[in-house]
Design a protein around this nucleic acid. Sequence first.
RNA 1: GGUCGCGUGGCCGAGUGGUUAGGCAGAGGUCUGCAAAACCUUGUACAGCAGUUCAAAUCUGCUCGCGACCUCCA
Length: 486
Amino acid sequence: MQQPLYITNSLTRTKELFEPVNPPYVGLYVCGPTVSGESHLGHARPYVTFDVIYRYLQFIGYKVRYVRNITDAGHFEEEGREAEDKVNEKAKLERLEPMELVQKYTNIYHDMMDALNCLRPAIEPTATGHIVEQIDMIQDIIKKGFAYEVNGSVYFDVTKYAQGNDYGKLSGRILEDMIAGSRDLDGQDEKRNAADFALWKKAPEQHIMRWNSPWGEGFPGWHIECSAMASKYLGSPFDIHGGGMDLMFPHHESEIAQTKIATGCSPVKYWMHNNMITINGRKMGKSYNNTITLREMFYGGNDVLERSYAPATVRFFILQTHYRSTLDFSNDALQAAEKGLQRLLNAYDTIAKLNASPASSVSIEKIESDCYVAINDDFNTAIVVAQLFEAARIINSAHAGTEQLSAADITRVKKLFDDFLFQIMGIKQVQQDNSADLNGIMDLVLEIRATAKSKKDFETADKIRNTLTTLGITIKDTKDGAEWSK
RNA sequence: GGUCGCGUGGCCGAGUGGUUAGGCAGAGGUCUGCAAAACCUUGUACAGCAGUUCAAAUCUGCUCGCGACCUCCA
């Protein structure tokens, strides 16, 4: 079980042996959502992915500090006008403060993460709660000569940084190409160089979120919050920084540059990036008009997919793919995942009904070891799932009598599901209502039905079965008598 | 335009030099009063072309197609 763990490091584009900076402690930072809107399907991918990573690191004994931020400030510059109008309008209609909106979307996000059974991070810092830390870091960077102030805004001097550091290493970019291909954006004339990025932005008149700073009223730049909060809570360097692939540039590239100047070292040992999701083959986005919020996904109301899907189905679907591959959501694929997960859960329930044989006809140990090999190989949950399906086949075969399992292997296969499906992959175990009352009632009902069947009174037998079905209780007739499940 | 990645059987999706991925759907069978579940059997799969090799889905080159990033984005 204690095999070496390999992680694909985006920085080197290779699989590397995972060796924490300060074992047994592991620092894990994941870029959280911008809570200026409702959580959507795109958010499910990184947070499920890194939830499994968090769970597994703990499972193999590491003491993990998981930090996942909430971006609730800044970042409104590009949307500027639209965001302002929206906020003002809603504030009038609903008497909402801007921070109230942020709180509302944060609450929804938390609810959706709970529904997906993502463990809550150890620390969930907000950008607005760390303005001081960000200003401190910016001042430090200015003092070291890698940032300059213009008209109340502060920019990071990428050109100067690139002279002694390989800016662009993470995202595979060449500075000269970027400068040549850059567009004219707001504030471009203030920058010494097109590739420079803002550490602090002067707040325009209508901008609601604003803070005092040494450079006047403004708000923090696009990337500084993660640098400030990650180094505050995890130090520098720390172990793993995760996020979506779309954040590699410019967000993470800029984080590296800022932190390297501020702390003197490259901030992260292992950069991990999950790939994007698509819907019916297209990237999800407003311009495609195919955005699905998580609430719509779970409870219905979207126009893109034909129906809603349970959080566990979405989670399982995500884990059926390796996190570095794109994942396409479609009705067919989700329904296949839904049935597949049900098959696994049914098999798990069947374990309790197995009769032990003197010896096993198959090796559970082999499946178990294959699961560890897979999860240790850059968290390949797709292969773990395949192994669990093999285990399910064995359980069902043992139940049908075509395979045999010893008492020890029955225990072992149950542990395999407990560990991998529930604990590591975080599929929520359905709470069975196995109260003594219900068991007694069901025993009686099934006995009456068996009597009816023996008298060829199928009308009564079917009525019992059909009525129970409408109550959510499934009856299955086996050669050893009827079984029920809720 | 620049950078990076992908193209696997009806659908989704692992794999990366020689050995069955797996799930869903389909077909046949077993069980069964029926149903459901389950079990057994069943698939010319690796975009195209050329090359390297004893051997390529897996390496190399070219072609075609798709996508991501380059601008807030998970």
